[in-house]
Design a binder for these strands. Structure first.
Length: 813
DNA sequence: AGCACGCCGACT
DNA sequence: GTCGGCGTGCTC
């Protein structure tokens, strides 16, 4: 508790690295608490800040006083502040912005400038002593004040700011600062009860009597519920209230993101292997920080292990955080957890509305939910007394946020576990090299599930060499005769087929048959992709679209050849080969609508879909019990990326997608088509042998000094002006070089690659450069970055050229 | 981020 | 000589 008349430390949600001290007036001091938000004066503005605690650190300048306390209860527990501070320091991101990223959105209040007409202005307007534009502005303002920013737009005429200044100077308009935002709040319901007063009504209608009877039986009932049974209830209640027979009150209500109720389910008997893992980890609950890597083959029952660990944690009054890579998988996980733990489960993911998200947040804070299941951002769930943090499919790249605060939720899970003195459990059939390297360095303890449940065999994987394969007429087919035959057999038996190709669209390389030029995006240095369903060429980087009938921009010819393939082309080929089969496609183009993924998954489960064609989306952890054949159309696409993790991603993707086969009673089979059958990533995926893959890949990383042997930081430099961007990249490169030689002696160990032009040099009209910093010693690398940012803050705040610091980058293109 | 201040080119 | 362009620095 902060003493009366205290000073508080406040972080503001702006790109400002220091925190600020504010005074608290006596009359609100009782409402101050760490984790609440305050409205504070900041320069000319009023903005939202987060209370970090009391402070006796006084600034040299006059200290301002807070304007308001915005929350009745804290939005995050005090115990999370060290976590926020760690993130701010590690990712070189302003603390207030870190907290803003962590909290549910739509809560903050900010102000904006608005102008209104004054009495003098009205006079001038009626006298007509105004210029035409002045008149237009004043006339517009007679119907109410207007946001200054929107004035030009709503008048459809450019307004010089000098004119506004002049009008203010002559007192014809006034400038006001209005508050906006903070629209997400607790939703309340009106509830009715009988007051107990004797009811004597002159005319007792049937409806009124029904309401009174219901209230007599059920006590307190919401108006909404009454209205369902008696449509005229709201009006009748109003009249009953006027007479003092009933009383109304507002009660907070949690918005329900769960569509349907789920029947409770008892825990199954564990396999011997599962039991070993559960016993091992349960023994360490409450035993301090420790990280485990659970390596379990696809279909080995990792989720059941998670659930039994959660049950044990809850028994010990500890909370549980479960991270899952994406929404479709969260839904699966959430259903199983809710069947076991009922309403003690909260979910946090981007599929929730702002209100639902806020309510889930409040349920966690109110300790109504002790288990949180969510995507990446759920790492910020406001839990206290955490027993275990579980990261399912820990190798999944979607744990890395690729915008604003570029954190990796899997890494943060380990950090949060350490700060909370609890367990971290990372699970995967195909662990990241980073995590397995941590096992090797004894930072993590490995636990294993080597068998599929009910001893189902792993699918048999046949490799087809695309260089050799020809059909009967000697023509190369992307659905090879071998795959075609297997598909026919599988469909004949009434089983399902999954086809995987890691590229969406119809053709990824449209090329002009007259001049040989590729059709390129207007805004990016990239080839367009033909989307036949949408009748358009699309840029996958900026969203630029051209009609599919358009001709070559270079020579004007309309003869465009469609080279390269995507899931649309595969879908079309399957429809052609198997006209009687029902074919569905699952990729980003078919799953943008809310609920569309679930509809597709339901179609697979209900067997209304015979063949599912998809991108990596289908590889991720889904349980498809009736799929017995998986066809990998071309395993090489991810292998050819100019990125040192291409082999790792390929292995993970192939092993994961192969793992979708044979999860039911019938054994699975996989056809893997490739131009590189002897590549070790593909051979290891064929054998589903992670250790073999790891031991070869780690040698390659060692030889080149890449992660996980070293750590990397990437400076991503981008700007609209080609030359300014290049010049700024060069300048930053010089500063790094200077720091290496002139800074601390250990800085010589930091290797710098670049500045070089990015491999995608222009995206969305922005020119891109990059500098890669690499060092085997994480601490030295971060000290280096710390010095660089501290010594040259203005270089990172260059207005014309943006510099993004990506710590532990994942995609370095 | 957004607002003020300040220093140079093009207008009365 | 001023007006206004945007580059720089600061916000308890």
């Amino acid at each position: 508790m902060i003493p009366v008349h205290a000073h508080i430390e406040v972080a503001v949600a702006l790109p400002v690295f220091q925190t600020f001290t504010y005074g608290v007036p006596e009359d609100v001091s009782d409402f101050i608490a760490t984790g609440k938000r305050v409205l504070v004066p900041f320069g000319q503005r009023r903005i939202t800040g987060y209370i970090l605690g009391s402070t006796d650190r006084l600034a040299d300048k006059d200290i301002k006083v807070i304007l308001d306390v915005l929350d009745e209860h804290p939005l995050f527990p005090e115990s999370m502040i060290p976590f926020f501070k760690w993130i701010a320091d590690y990712y070189k991101y302003p603390l207030g912005d870190v907290i803003k990223t962590a909290l549910p959105g739509g809560l903050n209040i900010y102000d904006f400038v608005s102008i209104a007409i004054s009495e003098k202005g009205r006079q001038a307007l009626s006298e007509g002593s105004v210029t035409p534009l002045e008149g237009k502005i004043l006339q517009h303002l007679t119907s109410g004040s207007c946001r200054l920013r929107d004035l030009s737009k709503s008048l459809n005429h450019a307004v010089p700011s000098a004119l506004i200044q002049a009008l203010i100077g002559r007192g014809r308009i006034t400038k006001i600062r209005k508050l906006s935002g903070g629209t997400t709040r607790t939703r309340t319901q009106r509830y009715v009860t009988l007051t107990g007063a004797d009811i004597c009504l002159s005319r007792r209608s049937v409806a009124k009597q029904k309401i009174i009877d219901l209230l007599n039986i059920e006590g307190e009932v919401s108006v909404k519920a009454l209205k369902k049974r008696v449509p005229s209830a709201p009006a009748l209640i109003r009249s009953l209230e006027k007479k003092g027979y009933v009383s109304l009150r507002q009660k907070p209500e949690y918005r329900d993101p769960f569509g349907e109720t789920i029947l409770p389910e008892a825990a199954p008997v564990l396999t011997a292997e599962q039991q070993v893992v559960v016993t091992r980890l349960c023994g360490q609950l409450k035993g301090g920080f420790h990280s485990f890597l659970l390596r379990g083959v696809t279909g080995s029952g990792k989720t059941e292990v998670y659930m039994q660990l959660a049950a044990e944690a809850i028994n010990k009054a500890l909370s549980v955080l479960v991270l899952v890579p994406e929404i479709a998988l969260i839904t699966q996980m959430e259903r199983r957890f809710r069947a076991r733990f009922g309403d003690r489960v909260a979910v946090l993911h981007s599929g929730l509305s702002a209100g639902e998200r806020y309510d889930q947040w409040r349920r966690i804070l109110d300790k109504q939910a002790a288990i949180v299941i969510g995507a990446r951002s759920a790492i910020f769930a406001p839990l206290e007394d955490i027993g275990i943090i579980i990261v399912d499919e820990e190798h999944d790249t979607s744990y890395k946020q690729e915008s604003t605060l570029r954190y990796n939720a899997r890494d943060l899970a380990v950090v949060r576990a350490k700060l909370n003195n609890c367990l971290a459990l990372l699970g995967s059939a195909t662990p990241s090299l980073q995590s397995y390297y941590n096992v090797y360095r004894q930072k993590f303890t490995e636990v294993n599930l080597n068998e599929r449940i009910e001893k189902r065999p792993l699918p048999k994987i046949s490799v087809i060499d695309l260089r050799q394969s020809r059909d009967a007429r000697g023509i190369r087919r992307f659905i090879t005769p071998e795959l075609h035959r297997e598909m026919a057999i599988t469909l004949e038996r009434g089983e399902q087929v999954l086809l995987f190709l890691n590229r969406r669209g119809f053709a990824s390389f449209p090329i002009c048959a007259s001049c040989g030029q590729a059709l390129r995006c207007k805004h990016c240095d990239i080839s367009l992709t033909l989307h036949q369903k949408a009748n358009a060429y699309r840029c996958h980087y900026c969203g630029f679209t051209r009609a599919s009938s358009s001709s070559c921009t270079i020579c004007g010819s309309s003869r465009v050849k469609h080279l390269g393939m995507g899931t649309e082309k595969v879908e079309a080929a399957v429809r052609d080969l198997f006209p009687q089969a029902s074919v569905a496609r699952m990729d980003r183009d078919t799953t943008t609508r809310k609920g569309s993924i679930l509809a597709l998954l339901k179609g697979v489960n209900d067997k209304t879909i015979d063949v599912l064609v998809g991108t990596q989306m289908v590889a991720k952890g889904h349980d498809f019990p009736n799929i017995t054949l998986v066809g990998i159309i071309c395993a090489d696409l991810s292998l050819s990326f100019p990125d040192f993790r291409a082999g790792e991603r390929t292995f993970q993707l192939l092993a994961q997608v192969a793992g979708r086969a044979g999860r039911g009673d019938v054994p699975g089979r996989v056809i893997l088509q490739t131009y590189n059958p002897e590549h070790f990533s593909i051979l290891a995926a064929q054998e589903q042998d992670f250790i073999s893959f790891y031991s070869q890949e780690i040698e390659f990383r060692k030889a080149l000094g890449y992660p996980p042997i070293s750590r990397m930081i990437q400076l991503k430099i981008s700007g609209k002006d080609k030359h300014k961007t290049k010049a700024h990249a060069r300048l930053l490169g010089d500063l790094c070089r200077d720091l290496k030689s002139a800074g601390s002696a250990s800085f010589s160990k930091v290797a710098m690659m670049g500045p070089i032009e990015a491999s995608l040099p222009r995206i969305a009209e922005h020119y891109r450069w990059q500098i890669l910093l690499k060092c085997e010693n994480t601490r030295v690398l971060h000290e280096f970055l710390g010095c660089l940012v501290a010594e040259h803050p203005t270089q990172f705040a260059n207005r014309g050229v943006k510099t993004i610091i990506d710590v532990d980058p994942y995609f370095i293109m």
